[in-house]
Design a protein around this nucleic acid. Structure first.
Length: 806
RNA sequence: GGGCGGAUAGCUCAGCUGGGAGAGCAAUGCCCUUACAAGGCAUGGGUCACAGGUUCGAUCCCUGUUCCGCCUACCA
């Protein structure tokens, strides 16, 4: 046995073992038998670096995977990264900007090549960081959402959905980010409450005297107004319906129309209608007969167009807003401005204010898919944990709107659609020249023309993510892996991507695999800072997991995260607790030193399980069993914090505080029970390491390797492949008797808080006789405990009629 | 506007299906005792947000109130 340091230092140990695990291929389940258990990792963005959310997410998955692996499962954890369309493109564009370049000057192909180069250089960072955390992913199966296999899956899905009439192209108002220069889905818009101004503007009647006053938060859009709407029930305006007003600054004549969606109590009860730049207004416009025209005054860069009139053309939308207000004021047409708090949509990637624009986009018709996805949760084929999230899931799915999947960026899966440039016959015209194909077509299948143009857009990143559980396993081929590992066992994720990702995976899994993508969805909390604030770079409250790992070791850090992970509640990260768990690692380390030193001097081997030990032995073995039971039950229910608490309590407050203390009597003597005691120490330590390993892979491996010399079963090379201690039979008598010993000594009956109603009065009475009231410290009573432990054994033996010493 | 969650020791938080108020850190005191001073032993500290109700009994169940936080929504 190597001389062990008095304190545990993780620095050199972690990398050593991780490399060994990789070398020996422990994370690859191909050679193992047993029931399949699989998890696909929520693929982090290639641009990402490990943050607390990743760390929590990966730790929980690793605990599950290691635990299942140790309970005889064929455990597969598939890792990978997401190409993260907009995010990655933004990163590389910023890099270009520093070089005085932009992607348009580079051209599409060169730009994409540049992104791949960036990916090769920096994209592996987060993978490296996951390894530092100890994640036992099967890296031989690592995937990237844009690699060849997954791209094939994407095209296949697109074509099939199109053929089933579930993908269509339409020209309507969508959320547009003028900075990223692309359409966004509803989910990609973040709403934020902001202070703004409500401006009351006068629109003079075209004929006769007077005006009507409208209130708006966006005065610049008045240039695109095509009507004023009032509620048909509103007596104030009833006579004006059907009349026209002259739109200031433009001189256009626009009608006053009725629409019941107008709220008479808001503003003036009259609303300006800008169908080209507002979702509500577009709806009002469509309800009119004939529909109102749309006048687009803002372009895709957020600049005012020619339509806006000479005064504003080419101006930024906010500059224009000021100018419009200024001009209207000069004309005496501003009645007043009021402070007004309202919610404004922002791009989730760059925080630019969204501009609703009318553009042609591709959509997935999700209603029919959503129906089935809801049914899968409703009938229990998918279990959401904690179940409170089911409501959220259902309410979103019930109101789901079609999913805009096209993006006007370059980095991503190019939409597999080509347009015939000639449309030379009726069929082709009827199909609008749209060709949807898995591979690039040579010629138009309708009219035979060879002049084709591929759609310039790429797909929403989440489109490929939605296929992740089966695309990573080889779909559309019918692979052995799919047969073995699909559906996956559980999806572990944060609630922030429940809609973005989880719901869509369920829809796609059901559609293309005919089965759910996972049995369970475990939704963990978000990691916040100590004040409960979401961690973000801009707030400067980010805690870097890598710094935590360096400072306290991956084991202590992982254990903290697991202990924080109480269900259904946000995690407020507290560094103090990480430090506390580092002390725990050290405690374990020293307990192991104690056991090994004694095993060494006694020259003991782990000959036989100490089933017939004294009271202390029977007690600790039974408590170990209880701990194993608790941990299995907790992990089964994803109660990570409970599992962590069980093993912590056991190791520290039962094994170290009591059993090790009691063992000294035998160890320091030369009695017959010495060998048995060492055997028990080794055995309990060994099992404790197994229980703890999913939470603390590194220190447990280090110690486990240290006590291998004393192990009977030397075949197992690593704790990674060892058995998770199986619960044996509890020894309730021993637990009960020990509870009296403990009570007598500390005044606290049963340190785990369990109720023991019992007939063993003789023991309790004997203990009181010995104890008296003098001192109650453990230390002072050590000899007493030793005697009592033996006494307990005798008495129990007598009570149960069991032969003494058996 | 709708929905969800939280309010427990100085701080960060556990308390699963009602009957003991708890952990870690911090504080205080005593111990460098042959696994561990990154330790041990002990101590102090909480009308479990507030007001009602159900119950033999409520931190836990019900109702209401007040503060937080989050999700969601096309109020100009």
């Amino acid at each position: 046995m190597a001389e062990l340091e008095k304190s545990y230092s993780p620095q050199h140990i972690e990398e050593k073992w991780y490399n060994l695990w990789l070398e020996r291929g422990y994370f690859n389940p191909d050679a193992s038998q047993g029931k399949p258990y699989s998890i696909v990792i929520p693929p982090p963005n290639v641009t990402g670096s490990l943050h607390m959310g990743h760390a929590l997410n990966a730790t929980l998955q690793d605990i599950l995977i290691r635990w299942r692996r140790m309970t005889g499962h064929r455990a597969l954890w598939v890792p990978g990264t997401d190409h993260a369309g907009i995010a990655t493109q933004n990163v590389v564009e910023r890099e270009l900007a520093r070089e005085g370049l932009d992607r348009h000057r580079l051209g599409r192909e060169a730009f994409i090549a540049r992104v791949w180069k960036w990916k090769a250089e920096y994209g592996g960072r987060i993978i490296h960081q996951l390894k530092k955390l100890g994640a036992s992913c099967d890296w031989s199966r690592e995937r990237f959402t844009l690699d060849e296999g997954l791209s094939r899956a994407v095209r296949e899905v697109f074509v099939r959905l199109y053929e089933d009439g579930l993908i269509y192209r339409d020209n309507r108002l969508i959320n547009w980010c003028p900075r990223c220069h692309t359409a966004l889905s509803d989910l990609e818009v973040e709403h934020e409450e902001l202070d703004g101004l409500l401006t009351f503007m006068r629109y003079p009647l075209e004929k006769g005297q007077g005006h009507i006053v409208v209130a708006t938060t966006r005065p610049e859009t008045m240039l695109g107004d095509t009507a004023v709407a009032v509620n048909p029930e509103d007596g104030r305006y009833r006579d004006l319906i059907g009349k026209t007003v002259l739109l200031p600054l433009t001189g256009r004549s626009i009608p006053i129309v009725a629409d019941s969606a107008v709220d008479p109590s808001f503003g003036t009860g009259a609303v300006k209608v800008t169908p080209a730049h507002d979702f509500n207004d577009e709806a009002i416009a469509k309800r009119q007969d004939p529909p109102l025209p749309a006048v687009s005054v803002i372009d895709d860069r957020g600049m005012m167009t020619l339509e806006a009139g000479a005064v504003c053309e080419g101006m930024d939308r906010y500059e224009c807003r000021k100018k419009v207000v200024r001009e209207l004021k000069a004309a005496g047409l501003i009645e007043k401005e009021e402070k007004h708090r309202h919610s404004v949509g922002h791009c989730y990637r760059c925080k630019t204010v969204i501009e609703p624009l009318s553009t042609p986009q591709w959509y997935v018709s999700v209603k029919p898919l959503a129906e089935k996805a809801m049914a899968a949760v409703r009938d229990g084929r998918i279990k959401i944990v904690p179940p409170s999230w089911e409501n959220t899931y259902f309410s979103w799915m019930e109101n789901i709107r079609d999913w805009c999947i096209s993006r006007q960026i370059w980095w991503g899966h190019r939409i597999p659609v080509w347009y015939c440039q000639k449309m030379e016959n009726a069929e082709c015209t009827m199909k609008k020249g749209i060709i949807v194909s898995r591979t690039a077509p040579e010629a138009c299948p309708y009219c035979g023309n060879g002049e084709l143009l591929q759609d310039a857009d790429v797909l929403d990143t989440w489109f490929s993510s939605a296929l992740w559980p089966f695309s990573t396993l080889g779909w559309p081929d019918e692979t052995e892996e799919l047969r073995t590992f699909y559906p996956t066992s559980v999806l572990v994720t944060g609630f922030d991507i429940l809609f973005f990702w989880v719901a869509r995976m369920i829809m796609m899994g059901l559609k293309f695999m005919g089965d759910v993508p996972f049995r369970d969805v475990y939704i963990h909390a978000l990691v916040r800072d100590a004040k409960g604030q979401k961690m973000s770079k801009s707030k400067g409250n980010v805690v870097d997991p890598l710094i935590m790992i360096d400072k306290y070791g991956a084991d202590a850090f992982r254990f903290s995260l697991a202990a924080f992970a109480a269900q259904g509640r946000d995690v407020r990260f507290s560094e103090d607790r990480v430090e506390g768990y580092r002390f725990f690692v050290n405690k374990l380390w020293n307990a192991a030193r104690f056991v090994m030193m004694n095993a060494e001097t006694a020259g003991a081997g782990n000959d036989a399980p100490p089933a017939t030990g004294g009271l202390a032995e029977r007690w600790i073995m039974s408590r170990l069993t209880l701990t194993a039971e608790e941990m299995n039950a907790s992990l089964e229910d994803y109660r990570f914090n409970d599992a962590a608490s069980s093993i912590y309590q056991f190791i520290w407050h039962e094994f170290c505080d009591w059993y090790i203390e009691m063992s000294k009597e035998a160890l320091y003597g030369e009695g017959a029970d010495k060998r048995e005691t060492i055997t028990c120490l080794l055995s309990v330590l060994d099992a404790s390491l197994g229980l703890l390993h999913p939470f603390m892979p590194f220190v447990t491996e280090e110690i486990w390797q240290g006590i291998r010399a004393y192990r009977r079963d030397a075949a197992t090379q690593s704790i990674v492949m060892a058995q998770f201690p199986a619960p044996a039979a509890r020894d309730y008598e021993a637990e009960e008797e020990m509870s009296y010993v403990i009570e007598a000594v500390t005044g606290v009956r049963n340190i785990r808080g369990e109720m023991n109603i019992s007939p063993g009065r003789e023991v309790a009475a004997s203990i009181r006789t010995f104890t008296g009231d003098a001192s109650r410290t453990l230390k002072d009573n050590l000899p007493l405990i030793r005697r009592l432990a033996r006494l307990g054994e005798v008495i129990i033996g007598t009570d149960t009629g069991r032969p003494k010493g058996s």
